[in-house]
Every structure is written in structure tokens, then in C-alpha cells.
Computed example of a mutant assay.
Amino acid sequence: MRFPLLLAVASAAALAPLSAHPEVDLSAEDMLAPYYAKLERQIDLPVAPPGAALAEDTVLTRIGVGSCNHQNRSQHMWAQIAAADPQLFLFIGDNNYGDNGWAGDAALGSLRAAYAKQAETPELATFRKAVPMMAVWDDHDYGFNDAGASFSPRRWSETIFETFWGSGEEVRSRPGVYSSRLVGEEGRRVQVILLDTRFFRSDLEEMPYQRPRPPLGPYVPSSDPDKTMLGEAQWRWLEAELAKPADFRIVASSIQILTDAHDYESWENLPLERAKLYRLLAAREESGLVLLSGDRHAGGIYTDTPDEAGGEQLWELTSSSLNLAFNDTASNTAREPDPKRLTDFISEENFGLIDIDWEARTFTVALRGNQGEERASRTVKW
């Protein structure tokens, strides 16, 4: 992965340790650390509007989910989501497009400006007063399109994210922004797990240049065992989280998990890592399970029964985007046939809902459009 050259504005603070100790081999990330420490002391980072709290004993029966929200476009979807009355909303990536217009400056000026715009968005402020939120990032609010661990300003981007969303001490104490939460009472306890598929992810392998450009992405799967999606520490954390008692689990990945139908970013890019994820899910403490994803600027409901999952049928709801639709549903569905997708590939603005029926032990995943209308749904027994 190649990124625009970080401007020399950081050089005086960052290069001093290297000049004093020329024998030390420092990474660009290490060299930038003193600059960011100084910058954090000098400026006030944007902070999200105050948010509603979620009580630990809340019995969750409706959770909302969405992704791909451009800070400069209409924010009308917040009212539609609020009207659906979710008890919790999961904002699972591309929560803004702070990479748009990035000039390569080490201070990530365009990213900070995107967060500052969100901080002053009245629709978001109104929504947050009413609905508790949990958030994780994808590439555009991480700082660069398709970026992973080789994105040199990632620690500064993490500081910006954690400051804006008010991340808890556990998240702030470690690299990356992954998090989890257990909510509810015994017998009706939900665990929400938000994975960080950016901070630790190895660079992806690209297909050789060809013309015309492939219509469904530039990447090819890699079976390199040294490549990682989550990084060693996050993998250990996830295994421990899945061992906790819960009755229903929601596992959110900013990028799609089950599909093999395209060559954009997805877990298919790193098949060994996806197989590892399936094995961990199969070994979890017994519970219901649904997977969530975003990223694609289109939504759908997916299912698969991977061998590594021990025969379990897995379900995934992809919800994208809130205000940045690219195509119409008919052409997008035809463009990307997928035997694992049970619905149209819904390309107009949408958000997702997960409804839990504790008595029937079922969950329903649904996509709703920009007028709150239902576009697709499936009900699953667990």
C-alpha cells in the first residue's frame, strides 16, 4: 500500500531522535510519534455530540446498524433510523469520509475537518440524544482508501477516533479500536463485538494491471500465513470474548465476511484468516449469532455453511450506505451475482435492523430504505 508523502511539517519533531541515534532503524510511524504527542497537546480534537447511555440490564430486542455516511451529504437518514425505535445503533465504518481531499499532511487535516463537521451536525446530535451508539471504523474514517496497518498516521487517526466517539479506557489502553459489550439479564444477554479490520490488517495482494479494469475490484486472495486481518492481540481478545456467556452475539466487521462474489476488500482476500474466524465462531460459548458488515454502498442478506464453522449456518447482514448510494438495485444485483446472497443487492440508501424474539428464540435481519420502508428481511431460528 502506497500513501501520499507525509508533508515535512512533522519533520522537525519526528526526525530529531533519528539524527541523534543514526544507528537506530525507526519506522515512519515511530518517527511521527513525537510530532503527534506535541500536536495533541496543542489542538482541541473534535468531539461527538453528547450521547444517550445504554443501561447494562437493558433487554435488547431491536438493534440498528448502518455505514457509509458522508459528512457533507444529506443527514436525513438519522430521523428514519430513530423512527424505527432501535435501543442501540451500531455505526460500523465509513462513518465519515475524512480521506476525501487529504493532501498527505501528517496532521490528517481532512480527517479532523470531517469529524469537526460531524460534531456540528444537528441531525446526528438529535439522534445521539435518543439512541445509544457504538462505533468502529472502516477505511475512509481511518484515513485512506483500503488502508491497513501500513498507514503511517494510524496512531494519530486512532486518537482522533477515540476522542470523537468517547472510547472507554479499555479501548484507549491498547492499539486499535475494537470493542465489545454485554447487555441484558441472564437468559436474555446480548454480546456486541465490533472488530477492527484496519489497524492491524496486512497489505492485500493486487491482481496484475489489466485493461479494461476489472468491474468487481482489484484484489486477489492470498494464502500467505504471515498475513493477518486482526493482528495477534485482537485474535486473542476475540477468542476470550467468544468464551464469555451470552445468549445472542452480534459480530460486526466493517468489510464483508461470507461472500466470494467480488474482488474488493473482504475476508475472502485472506482466506486463512477467514477460516480462523469461522473456527473461533464454531468454538464459541453456545449462543445465537449474526454477522454484520458494511462498506459496499449496497446491502443484502447472506448465508453460508462453511466447513470450518462445524456445520453451522451463518447469517450476515450487509447494511450500506446511509447517504452515498452509487447504483440502482436492479443493475447492481445483475452486476454481482452471488449464490450466498438471498436478496437483491440493494443500492439505494438503507439501514439495517436486528430484531430479537426472546420467547421464540428467533432473530430477524432487515434492511429499510430512505423512507423507512422494508426492502428485505429474513427470520432465523437459533
Rank of each mutant, 00 (worst) to 15 (best):
L230C: 05
G231E: 06
G231I: 06
E232R: 13
E232P: 13
A233L: 09
A233C: 12
Q234G: 02
W235K: 03
W235M: 05
W235N: 02
R236W: 14
E239F: 09
E239Y: 06
E239L: 03
A240D: 15
A240Q: 15
E241V: 12
E241C: 09
E241D: 13
L242A: 00
L242K: 02
L242G: 00
L242S: 01
A243G: 10
A243M: 12
K244W: 08
P245K: 06
P245G: 05
A246F: 08
A246D: 02
R249M: 07
I250F: 01
I250E: 00
I250N: 02
V251Y: 02
V251F: 02
S253A: 08
S253W: 11
S253I: 15
S254F: 04
S254R: 00
S254C: 03
S254M: 06
I255V: 11
Q256C: 06
Q256E: 11
I257R: 01
I257H: 01
I257W: 00
L258W: 04
T259H: 07
D260N: 11
A261K: 08
H262P: 05
D263S: 15
E265V: 15
S266D: 05
W267N: 04
E268H: 15
E268Q: 15
E268C: 12
N269L: 05
N269I: 13
N269W: 06
N269C: 07
L270A: 04
L270C: 04
L270H: 01
L270K: 03
L270M: 13
P271M: 06
P271F: 12
L272A: 07
L272Y: 04
L272H: 04
E273V: 07
E273H: 03
E273Y: 02
E273D: 08
E273Q: 09
R274W: 14
R274D: 10
R274P: 05
R274M: 07
A275D: 05
K276V: 05
L277C: 01
L277Y: 01
R279V: 15
L280N: 06
L280I: 10
L281N: 03
L281P: 02
A282P: 15
A283K: 10
A283N: 14
R284L: 03
E285I: 15
E285T: 15
E286D: 10
S287K: 11
G288H: 05
G288V: 14
L289E: 02
L289A: 01
V290C: 00
L291M: 05
L291F: 09
L291A: 10
L292Q: 02
L292C: 06
S293I: 13
G294T: 08
G294C: 06
D295P: 04
D295K: 11
D295R: 07
H297E: 04
H297W: 13
H297M: 09
A298E: 01
A298K: 03
